[in-house]
Design a protein around this nucleic acid. Structure first.
Lengths: 364, 364
DNA sequence: CTGTTAGCGCATTCAT
DNA sequence: ATGAATGCGCTAACAG
């Protein structure tokens, strides 16, 4: 016990010297640079008169060890008094974690798909006390794998991978996955085009988007519902899936389906419209522009639902009723699962996230 | 020299044991957890047959020390062979840096002002090999100062502070600044309401937005230009600044100014319009909706310029011509300056960033 | 030119 | 119940 006291005294002395030294250093600096003393666990230990490990245990609330009430109080008071903030770099160094996850994104930051994902990811991560890092990848080059170094770097504990639009980029998803797994990176993939029942794959259900739109109209009494889309390209499955969703909905309710190319629409065709499912907001906007041109009133002359939502959808001349893929919710869940994977927890069996209708004023 | 060789042998032996141990550990794990050996500087040193510090110096390209061409080659080859990625946590631990900057943002993530800032910040940071962290702050609570702990944590090296809209939040900017300075955090503030000529303050120039819009119309030959705005509230300086910008432009060119409340507009007033500066896109949209209602054609019957830009501005029935505060460029420059501050460099004297016109189809 | 070594701040195993 | 000692991976001052 005597020995211990002496050691503490020495520690005390050393730290005091360190302080004085810092002050001298400050005075020697002629510029305006401020040297702000960073309070460490050592300082807290000194202030509390305990050992460093006691501080670590108490402040981390570990249940493995018990300290006397008195010691605990001493340490907590000292930490508060010194305004102690644990250094997460050092902590991460020790426990091999950074408590942050990285976003690998190949969309333009301005795109609302990315923005909704970002919001879902940030909110969920923060809930778990994780922070979010934007991994520097080129959105011009979908074959950029440098983000994996971010994991090796230990700057991040896992990755939320947001796959790009399939129509614009040819991305080798398998290769990305292969490399992440080779490096042992915990990951989830949003907007994957791969079929897998692994919980870390999240597919956007374009089928459900048009299905939901059609059912919405059917439930409101419409029977004559036209599907309007640009020409469907075979090598772009999303378009095909959208079309099929509408088709299945119509079949299910015993209704006839009719598909029209947006470029073929003229005044005469429009006169025949009762209700329209547009494959996207872009298409709906084109229809709306023509409606204004020809003097049709929406929704008085016909109703319209778009099978996705865009930034501008609610700001069109007639605010658009849309069915939307719940990008935000999917991002939340993906992040949730990622953090569970990181912490080796099993994930609850979530129910499927379905498309939602956002009501505008384009349906009567 | 002999001594050194022996030491190397021992190091070699120890590392080999470590490897074997890791393999055994792997086999003992019955679950699917993969233990991925992380290659460290030690491994590279062993592979190259040099010391650890040699590897550090060579790989960091330090000019302070010279190593023989042979050694350099040996080390570089070894690093490549082992696919070595330096551990930035450890590096940061040593040099007290994280090479990442934090965004403190009180806007909704969905808001395009935030999104444009994000893009500017991310692109610039990456240019300097810095990564970007979204600091977890509540956008409901502008008195949340917890982000400062992120600096003390050393998870970030500096902060880009994006001040919220003044009309919606009462934020105590002075207090935020005081605390950042007290903690010694390098920072820049975007959208500040404070007047300061420090290079780390970035003010949005609402004055310039309407000024630019008015001048644009004047230069196209318009003389009768009306300013349309909602009622101006005195305690919301932005509105006043916008109005003044228009006013000064008109005075400068010897033209009469006329201001109309958006809520007072009817068909008769609209008939008198030749050209309009709208304080915002919201206002322009309202005018446009009324124009459609009354059967006016834009820009045939009158032209219109909005003194800001929104996500939807280009998607209105008539794409809107806008003057925009260059949020993206300001964010780029702010980030640039922040990183200069972090690295104690002086910043070049930048010229003022002026508002830009984004042409739509609402001006003849 | 090259190697040794002392920490950076913290968590944790071992010793008492 | 409490402390001491070690090391995570790396940089840089120091020693040849």
């Amino acid at each position: 016990m005597h020995m211990f006291k002496i050691k503490l005294q020495i520690l005390n002395l050393l730290l005091t010297i360190k302080f004085i030294y810092a002050i001298i250093a400050c005075r020697n600096v002629s510029t305006e640079v401020k040297i702000i003393k960073r309070v460490t666990i050592k300082d807290v230990a000194r202030e509390a008169g305990t050992s460093i490990s006691a501080v670590s245990y108490v402040l981390n609330g570990s249940t493995k060890k018990k300290y006397s009430e008195n010691t605990v109080k001493l340490i907590k008071d000292a930490a508060k008094k010194l305004n102690y903030v644990p250094n997460n770099i050092a902590r991460g160094m020790r426990v091999q974690k950074s408590y942050s996850i990285g976003i690998v994104n190949f969309w333009d930051i301005h795109n609302h798909v990315f923005v909704k994902n970002l919001k879902g990811i940030v909110e969920t991560a923060n809930k778990y006390k994780y922070s979010v890092v934007i991994c520097p990848v080129s959105n011009k080059n979908v074959n950029d794998y440098s983000y994996i170094d971010y994991y090796k770097n230990r700057r991040i504990d896992g990755i939320v991978f947001i796959a790009p639009v399939k129509s614009e980029y040819v991305i080798n998803e398998e290769e990305h996955i292969k490399r992440m797994e080779a490096a042992g990176v915990p990951y989830v993939i949003i907007n994957t085009s791969l079929d897998s029942d692994k919980p870390c794959y999240f597919k956007y259900d374009f089928f459900d988007a048009t299905y939901t739109a059609a059912v919405y109209l059917i439930q409101r009494g419409y029977k004559d519902i036209t599907y309007v889309t640009p020409k469907i390209s075979e090598d772009y499955p999303e378009n095909y899936e959208r079309m099929t969703g509408y088709k299945i909905a119509m079949e299910k309710f015993g209704l006839n389906f009719r598909m029209i190319d947006i470029n073929d629409i003229d005044k005469e065709i429009m006169e025949g419209f009762s209700a329209v499912v547009a494959n996207k907001s872009d298409t709906a906007k084109k229809i709306m522009d023509k409606a204004i041109e020809y003097g049709f009133k929406i929704p008085d002359d016909f109703s319209i639902v778009a099978a996705n939502i865009e930034n501008y959808s609610q700001f069109l001349h007639v605010p658009l009723t849309c069915s939307q893929i719940p990008i935000f919710k999917i991002a939340q869940r993906a992040t949730d699962i990622l953090i569970n994977i990181i912490n080796d927890k099993t994930t609850d069996d979530f129910e499927k996230i379905k498309c939602e209708i956002v009501e505008g004023k384009s349906v009567k």
